[in-house]
């Protein structure tokens, strides 16, 4: 009996294979069932579209100063009011969103690449490579991030780096202090994976280290990387806001959500003109919440152990 059953199984399986397109498709189906994660995803997509396309439809996109329209509350011509230089808040909010999202995503890509690469190297080669990388990570983790960024921001102001470049430097700064946590996670996963049976089988095939590392091992960590990457975007947006709020990151006239919040520094603006600082605040809050919800959903959807 046992033989006929397994024979049948061998014959029918390929048909199911054809029906299912891939692992990713299945993960997406699981993600679709998580309502909160989908809310986050949809919100982020809408936010991205509005920020990147919105300014093209705005009559105030040039950001010209209009002395006749200083600090006006929301109206039909200026939906979210105007700021102290008579610029349209909504337009600036969208332009700021472009920068905040770009900084968030770019510094995530950079820090995840650094973290994954260094962690993978440490776990794969062990020995002195591991020692050097992990000790550097340990040192970086002992330095409190915010004061370090403040100092670096101050140094940048001192050196009179042009404002256009500062945004790139902010991205690099954020990723340079952001990678050790991920590197540790990747390393520990790598230590387990390199001892697995399929890696022994790969060893027997006589593959090069590079091939084993990037083709066999790292793809096994994709779920982990995706989740960490998503959550990192939120973290990076927050850090950028904090820096810009203190005037150390991206500086005016380039708008970011962080430096728009700067308006809350003045008592009069804070008490009497909430349209100056509430919209960017809500934008930061909602974006980061959505990212975290999406990250949590992705973690569940990509974790094969939670398959039901």
């Amino acid at each position: 009996m046992a033989s006929t059953v397994s024979e049948v199984a061998e014959v029918t399986r390929p048909e199911q294979v054809a029906l299912r397109s891939s692992l990713w498709h299945e993960a997406f189906l699981r993600l679709k069932k998580k309502r909160l994660a989908m809310v986050g995803l949809v919100f982020l997509l809408v936010m991205a579209v509005v920020c990147f396309i919105g300014p093209f439809f705005s009559p105030y996109a040039s950001g010209k100063i209009n002395t006749a329209m200083i600090n006006k509350p929301p109206s039909f011509s200026h939906w979210l009011g105007t700021d102290s230089l008579g610029r349209d808040i909504l337009t600036r909010l969208m332009q700021a969103g472009r920068i905040s999202l770009t900084v968030g995503i770019a510094s995530m890509v950079l820090s995840v690449s650094i973290g994954a690469l260094l962690g993978a190297l440490a776990g794969f080669y062990r020995g002195w490579v591991d020692q050097v990388i992990m000790r550097v990570a340990d040192v970086l983790m002992t330095i409190p991030g915010l004061p370090l960024l403040f100092i670096m921001g101050a140094v940048l102001s001192e050196w009179k780096i042009p404002t256009d470049y500062r945004i790139y430097i902010v991205m690099v700064m954020l990723s340079l202090i952001g990678w050790p946590g991920l590197a540790r996670m990747v390393r520990s996963q790598m230590l387990t994976l390199r001892e697995s049976e399929f890696m022994q089988a790969a060893e027997v095939l006589g593959l090069r280290d590079r091939r084993k590392l990037f083709f066999h091992l790292l793809p096994n960590l994709t779920p982990l990387l995706i989740v960490v990457a998503t959550l990192n975007v939120g973290g990076a947006i927050l850090s950028e806001s904090v820096l810009s709020y203190f005037g150390l990151g991206v500086v005016p006239p380039t708008p970011t959500w962080g430096n728009m919040m700067d308006a809350a520094n003045t008592l009069i603006d804070f008490q009497k003109r909430p349209w100056l600082w509430v919209p960017p605040g809500i934008a930061i809050f909602a974006t980061v919440i959505s990212i975290n919800l999406l990250g949590d959903g992705l973690r569940d959807a990509l974790d094969p152990k939670q398959k039901r």
Partner: peptide, 8 residues
């Protein structure tokens, strides 16, 4: 079962 890489 465990000698092939699950993600390739």
């Amino acid at each position: 079962m465990s000698s092939l890489n699950p993600v390739l």
